[in-house]
Structure formats: C-alpha cells, structure tokens
C-alpha cells in the first residue's frame, strides 16, 4: 500500500515533468524531459552501470567501516566515564565543522581513488552511529542494572548480556540514518576530485552540457539510495523489534 501510493506519486511527477518540458519548449540542455532522460539512460547504460558500481562500492565500504568504528566507539564511551568526559565533547565539536570542507584535504591526502570517498562517507556516518548507539547504551533500564548488580554481575558481562542487547534498537536507527548520509558523502568526495563514480559522471556531463546524461546519473543515484535505504531497513528491522516484543 505504502509502495503503491509511492509509485503513483512518482508516475504523477514524471507526467508533470514531461508536460512542463513539452508545453514550455525549454531547450534540452536546461531541462530534458523524462522520455529523453530514459532514452539517454538506456543508450549509456553500460557507462552508468560502471560508475554506479564504483559509487556503490564506496558507499557500502564506507557504511561498513563507519558502522564498525561507530559501534566500537560507542561501546568504549559507554564503558568509560573518562571517555565520555573527555572525548564526547570533542566529538560533538567536530560535528560543528562542515565535513564537506574536509573533502579537498582528503583528496589531497588519499588521492583521487576510492580511498578519499570512503573516508568521506566514514566521516559522515561515524557520528550518527556512535551517538545513537551510545545513547542507547546509556539508557539501559535502571531496574535491569539493579538486577544485574544484585546478581554480582561483572561489568563486561552486564554490557554484553544486558546493555548491548537493550541498545540494539538505537543502533538500528543510527545505521538507518547512516545509510541516508553515506551516498551524500561519497558523491561529494567524487565532486571534489575523482575519475570515476556517479558524482564524477554528473560533473562531467554537466560540463559538456549533456544535461540529459546528468539527469540519468542523478536518477540512478536516487534509485540506488532508495534501494540502500530499503535494504538497511530490512536488515535492521529485527534490531528495533527486539525490545518492542514485550506484550
């Protein structure tokens, strides 16, 4: 039902788009219609697929590394008071920096290849994952902590058997947020300096006034982002459900 209404909305937007282009007669380097974009997409499908693969790799690797780093940091912060006192404010402060401003430096340091884009994605993902998971770890129901104290539980066993499972739904929402940000990070990295990837293709097409190709690349990126979002939702859904299972 949700998807059906979504498809109807997309269909409506496409018709509207084509209508505007046909009625106003805008030149195709300003606004190509969806039919032209579809045609361009099809004739360039191999080119687009190749660049999509690159961007997808950057995003997925970035998502993996960023999530892993975020999980490790959150566990460290949640188990160390000193860590929370010293490192958390630093983390929050670094969030005030626009990460995008680092893109040129990352390209300088890590080159034009995958590395700088992955680093960009990791930087963007790291904070939401760390902070949501850490919040979850710090919000363990007090009753459960009391219970484990009366049972003479060790600190690490309490973390492993109670605090981490109780925080998995928060980790799930952090990862879902990360999945939204990751493609943005990768594409910005590609804009700043790359020879491959959808972001690079968009810039290239734009520079040569191939606006239809730019739209085709952009829409591909959009479809990829939506698919990634759905995939991550499916993968993390049971994390979120684990706490709500109680009747």
């Amino acid at each position: 039902m949700k998807y059906a209404s979504g498809l109807v909305a997309v269909g409506f937007a496409l018709v509207l788009w084509q209508g505007i282009v046909t009625l106003t007669g805008l030149p195709k380097f300003i606004l190509p219609g969806p039919l032209l974009v579809a045609e361009t997409w099809w004739t360039n499908r191999l080119l687009i697929a190749e660049h999509t693969l690159i961007t997808a790799m950057e995003v997925l690797i970035g998502l993996g590394i960023g999530t892993a780093l975020g999980i490790a940091s959150a566990i460290y912060l949640a188990s160390s008071r000193i860590g929370r006192l010293v490192i958390q404010p630093v983390l929050v402060f670094t969030q005030a920096l626009p990460v995008f401003a680092l893109a040129p430096i990352l390209t300088l340091w890590l080159g034009f290849g995958l590395g700088s884009k992955i680093a960009m994605a990791v930087l963007i993902i790291y904070f939401p994952v760390t902070s949501s998971f850490c919040d979850g770890l710090m919000r363990t129901p007090q009753g459960l902590l009391d219970l484990s104290q009366t049972m003479q539980a060790g600190r690490w066993r309490t973390l492993w058997l109670i605090r981490i499972p109780a925080a998995l739904p928060s980790l799930g929402s952090g990862i879902r947020l990360a999945a939204v940000y990751a493609p943005i990070g990768a594409v910005i990295g590609e804009w700043v300096g790359a020879s491959r990837g959808l972001g690079y293709l968009m810039l290239l097409a734009n520079g040569r006034a191939k606006t239809d190709l730019m739209f085709a690349a952009m829409l591909t990126l959009g479809v990829f982002a939506v698919l990634l979002h759905l995939l991550v939702h499916l993968a993390t859904r049971h994390l979120g459900a684990s706490l709500e299972e109680r009747g």
Binding site: G143, L144, L147, M151, R157, T158, L161, I162, P165, E245
Partner: peptide, 19 residues
C-alpha cells in the same frame, strides 16, 4: 525485569550467565 530478547530459560539462568 525480564529480558525481552531472551528466552524464558535464559532469563531464569541470567544470574549464572552474568557471573
């Protein structure tokens, strides 16, 4: 104070698991 993600069995032996 039952752990919603753990089975009845695992909840009952929680003390031993925690130690």
């Amino acid at each position: 104070l039952l752990l919603p993600w753990a089975s009845v069995c695992d909840n009952i032996r929680l003390g031993a698991r925690l130690r």
